[in-house]
Design a protein around this nucleic acid. Structure first.
Length: 502
RNA sequence: GGUACGGUACCCAAGUGGUUAAGGGAGCGGUCUGCAAAACCGUUAUUCACCGGUUCGAAUCCGGUCCGUACCUCCA
């Protein structure tokens, strides 16, 4: 089975054949480091983290390049506003981004190039463009001449005439045509600048990606990724610059992730409706955020809400409790559960080889993580069924359940970055976090548990139940396990009722 | 105005020509349990915004209508 990938360039899925057998080069547009990263940045990064992980799982040697734009108008503005130095701003937010991505469980990119380390590469590229007549210098600025690149607009489906009709284009007398864009900006007082053949200045935004991709992957390369809001003009301009300069294809496949929406609007800095990654990680586990994002296809817009995140948390908690159950060898408590039909279903769905094949088929189809997660949840149910009907720890059913547990952890962990690590520890962290959020006195809960255990051992059921109700009113739910042990957890909030915080 | 993408159950969501329309959340009924919880079983879309058309066959293709979102030089 071959992997099929949707390319924005062709608007269709096609079989993936890398340029070099067994190897894949990917370039993803990273952030401009002028402020904290929000969920939208996380989505893009996680999308391509999973692309990379899956291709690696399928045996490819992946080289992932994700840049940092560390010189830009917004960085300079921010520095002026804070009375700071632009390099310090860039440094601060680059470090924060790196920390956030690590916290979200992203594998570090193979290379994380910075624009300021590639100014010479950009200048060389600009020089070639001027030499070829695709760019022109005017008083220290250099512009790309869109007219010199007839294929301009192919990626976004825009026509130059229509672009020109757009009212948002800056009128700039120095440009030959309104759609031309800056490759090099002449230095202004108080702004960072580098010497160049056209005078002191700094690079335009688009040229950095062309230069860094060429430097770290060579041209052409396999996959270029980024948010769908970058299709026009950023990626369109990258193509124009790179292909006008080299005469060759730039990126073979263009992948774009969809935007995050809040109340039917795009989450963005300018609208102010964003949640930073750091804030979200204060409320939810990284894997919950990953599961939420990966629960829908990467190209679709996703509507963000705290309720939706909470649903993902519950789903993940269910999977984790199954893994933990297998780990502690909790077998055969409800032999009647599955029934005849259930037993057949179990046999069919606990064919782990088949499960892995189905998972692969989902991921092969343009990285359909939503379907892949569905496969994992079906496996979780099978594991529970097996555990329900099997009792001897060395019986076939228990062995199969353990194998299933390993498979779920392997696929989830290696490919999606969820369900990795110790299941019991995840559940405990989840409980601790939620009890803290509710302001629950854990010591008091433990005392109640002891009192109830005493009552139960004396068969004072009414007293035991009274304690259960008292705890329930505080949102604590009890689970009596085999033996004399009782574990406690936090009850799920009513779906429609807002969470009480008083 | 131009360019794309989308509208599937109570909610989220996968499915883009053909067996019972994934999965998750929520609800309800049941098994199990001292009572519970968890888990499991069953159940909640004869139907995929609406109207036409193509086809032996359509959620899926085509045309139209309505609604939503994004992009059109700040954006992941």
């Amino acid at each position: 089975m071959t992997i099929r990938i949707y390319s924005t360039l062709t608007r269709t899925k096609a079989d993936f054949r890398p340029l070099v057998e067994g190897k894949v080069g990917i370039y993803v547009c990273g952030p401009t480091v002028y402020d904290s990263a929000h969920l939208g940045h996380a989505r893009s990064a996680i999308t391509f983290d999973v692309v990379r992980r899956y291709l690696t799982y399928r045996g490819f040697e992946v080289r992932l390049v994700r840049n940092l734009t560390d010189v830009d108008d917004k960085i300079i503005q921010r520095a002026h506003k804070e009375g700071s130095e632009w390099r310090k701003i860039a440094e601060r937010y680059a470090a924060e981004y790196s920390r956030d991505m690590g916290d979200l469980g992203l594998l570090p990119p193979t290379v994380e190039p910075r624009a300021t380390d590639h100014v010479a590469d950009m200048q060389a590229l600009i020089a070639v463009l001027i030499e070829r007549g695709a760019a022109y210098a005017v008083n220290g600025d250099v512009f790309f001449a869109v007219a010199a690149f007839p294929a301009y607009g192919r990626l976004s489906g825009q026509e130059v005439s229509q672009v020109r009709a757009g009212s948002r284009i800056d009128v700039d007398e120095r440009k030959r045509a309104p759609e031309d864009f800056a490759l090099w900006k002449s230095a202004k007082p108080g702004e960072p600048s580098w010497p160049s053949p056209w005078g002191n200045g700094r690079p335009g935004w688009h040229i950095e990606c062309s230069a860094m991709a060429a430097r770290h992957l060579g041209v052409p390369f396999d996959i270029h990724g980024g948010g769908s809001d970058l299709v026009f003009p950023h990626h369109e301009n990258e193509i124009a610059q790179s292909e006008a300069a080299t005469g060759s294809t730039f990126a073979r496949i263009w992948m774009h992730n969809g935007m995050i929406r809040v109340d039917q609007e795009k989450m963005s800095k300018s609208l102010g409706n964003f949640s930073t990654i750091h804030e979200l990680l204060g409320v939810h586990d990284a894997e919950t955020i990953r599961a939420f994002l990966l629960g829908q296809h990467y190209r679709s817009p996703v509507d963000f809400s705290m309720m939706a995140l909470e649903e993902s948390r519950r789903a993940l908690a269910r999977a984790y409790s199954t893994l933990a159950r297998v780990d502690r060898g909790d077998w055969g408590r409800r032999p009647g559960g599955a029934g005849r039909a259930g037993a057949d279903a179990t046999a069919a769905s606990s064919d782990w080889l088949e499960v892995e094949r189905t998972f692969q088929a989902a991921m092969d189809d343009d990285f359909n993580t939503a379907r892949a997660i569905g496969v994992l949840f079906e496996a979780v149910r099978s594991i529970n069924r097996l555990a329900d009907v099997s009792s001897e720890a060395d019986s076939g059913g228990c062995v199969r359940a353990r194998e299933g547990r390993e498979l779920v952890a392997k696929l989830g962990g290696q490919v999606l970055g969820v369900l990795q690590g110790d299941a019991q520890a995840w559940l405990e962290r989840d409980r601790d976090r939620r009890s803290a959020q509710m302001g629950l006195d854990v010591t008091w809960v433990e005392e109640q548990l002891l009192a109830r255990a005493q009552a139960r051992s004396e068969r004072r059921w009414a007293d035991a139940d009274a304690i259960r109700s008292t705890l329930a009113r505080r949102g604590v739910v009890l689970e009596d396990r085999p033996g004399a042990t009782t574990v406690w957890g936090i009850a799920d909030a009513e779906p429609d009722a807002p969470t009480k915080d008083a």
